[in-house]
Design a protein around this nucleic acid. Structure first.
Length: 516
RNA sequence: GCCGAUGUGGCUCAGAGGUAGAGCAGCUCACUCGUAAUGAGCAGGUCGUCGGUUCGAUUCCGACCAUCGGCUCCA
């Protein structure tokens, strides 16, 4: 007999080899019915997993996000099987569970159409009726490679090769479809009761535009039909709240072929903008910010000095004045640097908090444009904080609180990422290290959960990115807090220190708490 | 940029190889009924752009432009 500690803390004695499904049944019939997987010492396992030693076990049900993830992932496999049946020769990419559903990437000669989704859905229904069980099998690396190698599943082979040496490699089979997968899965396809295929999209293998573009099919799935309907209804409701639709109906703004990504603000839209700006000014004034305005066009040599010419050129627009090259600003910081240098600064002046509502232009990829959320010009409510090294932490925390305050006022949900040094960047490793640590420290002091986004920092410094959610739960990178030691150095900024020594201030650039 | 879809009057959409319609909005007149749409009438489109096929294209083909859904939420 072994001892199993349940979620509520009770300890149960069961025979060695008892599966999680049997354990669930021994607890209650109702629980066994909704159980989809188990967690053994915090590791998710199939219901068929036999318990061999004392452990903490939790039954995962469809009432939880974890349970739904199992359902979603299994449905992805189901869809892959259907696609494989209908379109022989299809190669399989990955098919993870995502929020509210799942997707699967396929490499197929056949170009999928919306009509195909209907037939794939039918095939899925057929497979559900056949009640195929999901069978797990653990295999050696060599066996896995040979299995998928023989089938010409090059993406699977690539995945296997990328697995860590000590990884347990497992494959799941249902019906005549076998996939490389860590699991866990539902006991059977029969447990999939409420799904719908949603859309088709192109997606680069592993998200890199250097790789081949695969065809992605998105699907959604829920525990029961009522939940699915509820979700579809909410999607419809969200569409009605799409800012692009509202912008048109309420006569707030418009977009035109004459200027893709360059929005026109109408009188009513300006009323909103002005109200936002009033609020922005009020809150910044309260926090010790002064306001400036710097030019939209500055000469090339300045952009060479700032590093933009070398690191940001592909996103910039250019013009010529009196036979000299000029650039349209993609960022406000260099203007702020020039402003700083207009007079001698003392350490007593620091921190110097300066805000700017600056109109910036950036060349975004045509396919990325989206209403007012991804545009080619926008007013960025930028700020430049010039500060002593000793003031960094406090200032960063102040900015984090400011961003949080603004988002809370408008009811935005957001998540936070820490973006680190990109390949194409400038400055010493030490500076990057210091700056990244400082941002990290500020986040940790505030107790904010964040995830690291490697290589996505600005070319001159790491940043904290705030991703806000839209009505369809899509996230958009909005606010960002950057800490850079590069600009002050490039522009030779200085202040007179306590001992009359000259030193270079640090520059924090809390860009766009919002942008519009 | 890449994959797929779409592109018809201000808006929402229908339509077919032979030179285009509906509703709403707009304008005029009447009604005055008070808070999303009363009646009658009028006006409004080189059917995204440019080429090609054809006796003829907005409808077929191609290119381009724009818009929409996506482009790691990692086996």
């Amino acid at each position: 007999m072994i001892k199993v500690t349940l979620k509520d803390g009770t300890i149960r004695e069961v025979e060695q080899g008892t599966t999680i499904a049997e354990l669930a049944l021994s607890i209650s019939r109702g629980l066994a019915k909704v159980a989809v997987a188990g967690k053994v010492n915090d590791k998710t396992k199939d219901l068929s997993y036999p318990l061999t030693e004392d452990a903490a076990v939790e039954i995962v049900t469809l009432d939880s996000e974890e349970g739904l993830d199992v359902l979603r992932h299994s449905t992805a496999h189901l869809m892959a099987e259907a696609v494989g049946n209908l379109f022989p020769g299809t190669k399989f990419g990955i098919g993870p569970a995502i929020a509210k559903g799942y997707y699967y990437d396929f490499d197929s000669e056949h170009v999928f159409t919306p009509e195909d989704l209907v037939s794939i859905e039918k095939e899925m229904n057929r497979l559900v009726k056949e009640k195929h069980s999901f069978q797990r099998r653990e295999v050696s690396r060599a066996e896995a490679l040979s299995h998928f190698g023989k089938l010409g599943e090059k993406y699977k082979v690539e995945l296997i090769e990328g697995l860590p040496d000590d990884a347990t490699i497992s494959m799941y089979t249902q019906g005549n479809f076998t996939d490389l997968c860590a699991g866990p899965h539902l006991p059977s396809t029969a447990n999939i009761k409420a799904f719908k295929l949603m859309s088709l999209a192109g997606a680069y293998w592993r998200g890199s535009e250097k790789n081949k573009m695969l065809q992605r099919i998105y699907g959604t799935v829920f525990a029961k039909p009522a939940d699915l309907e509820d979700h579809l209804f909410k999607l419809e409701e969200a569409k009605r709240r799409d800012h692009r639709k509202l912008g048109l109906e309420l006569d707030l703004f418009s977009l035109h072929e004459e200027g893709p990504g360059f929005p026109f603000f109408h009188p009513k839209g300006m009323i909103l903008r002005n109200a936002l700006e009033d609020f922005w000014r009020q809150e910044h004034r309260r926090r010790g910010y002064q306001e400036i305005k710097t030019p939209i066009i500055l000469n090339r040599s300045m952009w060479e000095q700032s590093g933009h010419w070398d690191h940001y050129k592909e996103n910039m627009y250019f013009t010529e004045i009196d036979d000299q090259d000029f650039c349209v600003k993609p960022m406000n910081c260099p203007g702020g640097m020039i402003m700083y240098k207009t007079k001698m600064r003392s350490y007593r002046d620091l921190p110097l908090r300066v805000g700017e509502l600056g109109l910036v232009h950036r060349h975004e990829l045509s396919g990325a444009l989206h209403g007012l959320l991804r545009v080619r010009n926008f007013t960025q409510d930028d700020a430049h904080i010039f500060m002593l090294p000793s003031q960094i932490n406090e200032e960063l925390i102040g900015v984090i609180e400011l961003v949080d305050y603004f988002y809370k006022v408008f009811g935005f949900e957001y998540n936070v990422e820490l973006s680190t040094r990109p390949e194409d960047s400038m400055g010493s490793d030490e500076d990057w290290e210091t700056a990244t640590k400082a941002l990290q420290a500020a986040l940790e002091d505030k107790g904010i959960e964040y995830k690291i986004n490697p290589g996505d920092g600005a070319f001159y410094g790491p940043k904290i990115d705030f991703h806000v959610k839209d009505c369809l739960d899509r996230t958009w990178q909005c606010g960002t807090i950057q800490l850079d030691f590069q600009m002050p150095e490039k522009f030779d900024l200085s202040y007179i220190g306590e001992r009359r020594s000259k030193a270079s201030p640090s520059h924090g650039s809390p860009g766009c708490v919002w942008k519009y």
